[in-house]
Simulated scan of single mutants.
Amino acid sequence: MQRVVDFARPGVAFTTVQHAFRRVTHPMQLKRFREYVANNGNRRQKLERVEHFVLDRFRSARNNNLPVHDLDVKRWALSQAKIENIDDFKASDYWLLNFKKRNGISSRKVTKLVSHLEVVDKSIIKQTVDDFVAEATKHIPKYKFDFVLNADQSSFNYEIASNRALSYAGKKATYLSVKSLNAISHSYTVMPIISAAGQLLSPVFICLQEPTSRFQITRAVFSASNIVTSCSTSGKLNKSLAEYWIKEVLDKVVSNRFLLVVDQWSLQADITVYENNLTKGQSCKLLVIPRRATSTKQPCDPYFCRQWKVLTKGIYHRVSLDELDVDLRSRDAIIKLQIWFIIN
């Protein structure tokens, strides 16, 4: 439209304009075009600019993980429509519905909360991840795959309950029976070591939760050659247990030089802890995965522990649904369950 108006300057015959622009068929069109250009476009063009503006604002907000609601979209549309001088634009529910359909937008449940700092530092995080990948690519070829290792702590609740279940449509509340509300909020830790050769190394370390940080003397602890068991008040590793893991597990599975990939937990990211507790003079090269990158760059996370937890949850579900006489919260049941996964 702007090109037609620029071309049809005073003194240019209408037939010349028609020859250059075949869709211009009547002199009245030139008049309307000049009015549209003077008003910065026709109504359709102005509405397109409103939509582009709103879509840009929406994309910017979601790229920064900010919440956007229907009222925000309408507010953005009305403010831009005022700038475009579209006086009768109301940002109605019908317009909003069509806008969301055209751009593939719908209301979604929030599945994860992230800190503002994490959003702001995306570019920094990406750079540190790229640097880590480059360093790992440089060092891994120097070792046999059997001695390129990854160790990670994985937490398991004492009782695992499903967060979804089939029920009757239209019910306002869906209840789920558990043996102990306390058990679904308390956990123990399993710390496997896997190699780049695709092997789960034995033994596997299990840290159970005991109120006194000691196993009760009156109860024997089930043991097997492929596990090492200890405990703490929280069910998580502390400094002494990290050192115990190195002496009783890592020291037994490595006999020479090896490369170990770990996350940024301070107790396992300190090379001196390994140097002080390995007893065979092993040479340890430590690679520490940057923060916010373990979900994709730590092999244990996406390729091992996640599947391990899915299978564990399935067993808890089957025992609960079939009302089997098995208490999976007990110490021996937990150890035997983890042993079953190790040998299978």
Rank of each mutant, 00 (worst) to 15 (best):
D72Q: 12
Y94S: 10
K122L: 09
Y303S: 07
L287S: 02
I105Y: 00
T111Q: 08
K252R: 15
R43Y: 11
K285R: 12
S320V: 02
V190C: 10
I339E: 10
D6V: 02
Q80R: 13
R9D: 03
I335L: 15
D70C: 11
E159L: 11
L97N: 08
K179R: 02
H116C: 02
A136I: 04
K179I: 06
L96S: 01
R32F: 13
R23Q: 06
F99A: 01
C305F: 04
A173T: 04
A8S: 12
R9Q: 10
A173P: 00
L47F: 00
N85Q: 10
I124H: 04
E210G: 14
A61K: 11
I86V: 14
P141V: 09
S79K: 03
K100M: 12
I206F: 13
H19D: 14
I160K: 13
L259T: 02
E51V: 03
D131L: 08
V114R: 14
A38Y: 08
V4T: 13
D93F: 01
R22A: 07
K142D: 10
L324F: 05
A77R: 05
D130F: 05
H69R: 04
K100F: 00
P299R: 04
W95R: 04
S79A: 12
K179V: 04
S330D: 03
N150L: 03
Q2I: 15
R3A: 14
T233V: 13
G281R: 10
K313F: 03
S223A: 14
G41H: 10
S154I: 09
L176I: 07
H116V: 07
I184K: 10
W245L: 13
L30C: 03
W76M: 11
K309V: 07
S295K: 15
T189M: 06
F341C: 11
F304Q: 00
N65I: 08
S213H: 12
K179S: 05
F258L: 00
W308Q: 04
Y94H: 13
L208K: 08
W265G: 03
K309S: 08
T111E: 14
F7M: 00
S106K: 05
Y175T: 11
P141N: 11
S225R: 11
K144G: 12
R257Q: 11
P211W: 04
A173W: 00
T296K: 12
R306V: 05
A333W: 02
D327Y: 03
H26K: 05
D70G: 05
L55F: 14
E243F: 09
R257N: 09
I334N: 01
W308G: 05
S230N: 15
Y36C: 14
Q199C: 06
Q127R: 04
K252L: 02
C300N: 11
M1D: 06
T279Q: 09
D131H: 08
T218N: 15
V68I: 06
Q282I: 01
R219H: 07
K172N: 01
V17K: 05
R331F: 05
L117M: 03
L113M: 15
F21N: 12
V5N: 00
A165H: 05
W95P: 12
I227F: 09
N40I: 10
I289T: 15
Y143L: 01
P192S: 02
R22E: 07
K142Q: 14
T137V: 07
K46H: 03
D251N: 07
R214M: 10
R9P: 06
K171Y: 00
K247G: 06
N163H: 04
V326H: 05
N63Y: 08
I193C: 02
R329A: 05
I335G: 09
V50S: 08
R49N: 08
